[in-house]
């Protein structure tokens, strides 16, 4: 199965207006999609629609060949949200506890974790280089370490698609470099990546496909290798998109 994600004529509106209008694109195994757009253009909304956190009509989104509304192979998808949205830094939880929690779909309802699950957890923590921090309280780690822990949480299920919403926001420069390298390495191993990032230059350098969202809800989808340097520069500078096409 090479077709990982297909989005067809996707529309979405909140009570106060249209956010996405007729968005279409598809991704194959190993693709890296960078989603670019100003604040309020629907980047996070699009991610939530793909994840099923917001409702969509059937046949608008297909994941791994299955309609989003019927898709239930949850461990195939990893999601790293903007940590500030969902994370209480005083919460007493170690990195290991946070990472192993995401093994839920493999362990099952009311069941206990087994040795193999602990091994999977250790492996995921090692993949982001946090072995020394596994028993530390997650809220006491640096912003970069916390975000690496959240990446480990998604890796614990060996996902085929990873969705990252601004993974480097509020993270110091050296950590941004480490996180970017981890994401690039995962993609080079064949994991499909969808990412939004405030740093458009970095996102364009990582991605092979680009989706530019404009304020009127429309989207332009590009294959990077087919783009001229001129067009790439215009995208990078926010001058290219549906409004400017």
């Amino acid at each position: 199965m090479n077709n990982i994600l297909e989005v067809r004529n996707l529309d979405f509106e909140y009570y106060d207006g249209v956010v996405l209008r007729n968005v279409s694109f598809s991704l194959e195994k190993g693709d890296f999609l960078g989603i670019i757009g100003a604040n309020g253009t629907g980047k996070s909304t699009l991610l939530k629609l793909i994840l099923g956190l917001l409702p969509c009509r059937s046949e608008q989104i297909t994941l791994f060949g299955t309609d989003r509304t019927e898709f239930n192979e949850l461990s195939k998808i990893g999601y790293v949200s903007q940590k500030s949205n969902s994370f209480n830094s005083d919460f007493p939880a170690t990195v290991q506890e946070v990472v192993s929690a995401n093994l839920y779909s493999q362990i099952g309802f009311l069941c206990r974790a087994e040795k193999k699950h602990r091994v999977m957890c250790e492996k995921a923590i090692a993949a982001v280089g946090l072995e020394d921090c596994k028993n530390k309280q997650i809220g006491k780690l640096s912003g970069g370490q916390q975000q690496r822990a959240f990446i480990a949480r998604t890796l614990v299920n060996n996902p085929e698609l990873i969705i990252l919403d601004e993974p480097t926001v509020g993270v110091d420069a050296p950590s941004v470099e480490v996180i970017t390298k981890i994401i690039a390495d995962l993609n080079s191993k064949g994991i499909t990546v969808i990412m939004t990032n405030h740093d458009t230059h970095s996102l364009i350098s990582l991605a092979n496909k680009l989706l530019v969202l404009s304020e009127d809800g429309c989207a332009s989808f590009y294959d990077k290798k087919k783009l001229s340097e001129y067009k790439l520069t215009r995208i990078c500078e926010g001058l290219e998109g549906h409004n400017h096409a």
Partner: peptide, 20 residues
């Protein structure tokens, strides 16, 4: 419900995505 309660308490959105 230990692991379910922990997951929901820490991050309800992620718990929902994981199928809790």
């Amino acid at each position: 419900l230990y692991k379910e309660l922990f997951f929901i308490t820490f991050d309800e959105e992620a718990a929902k995505l994981a199928g809790v």
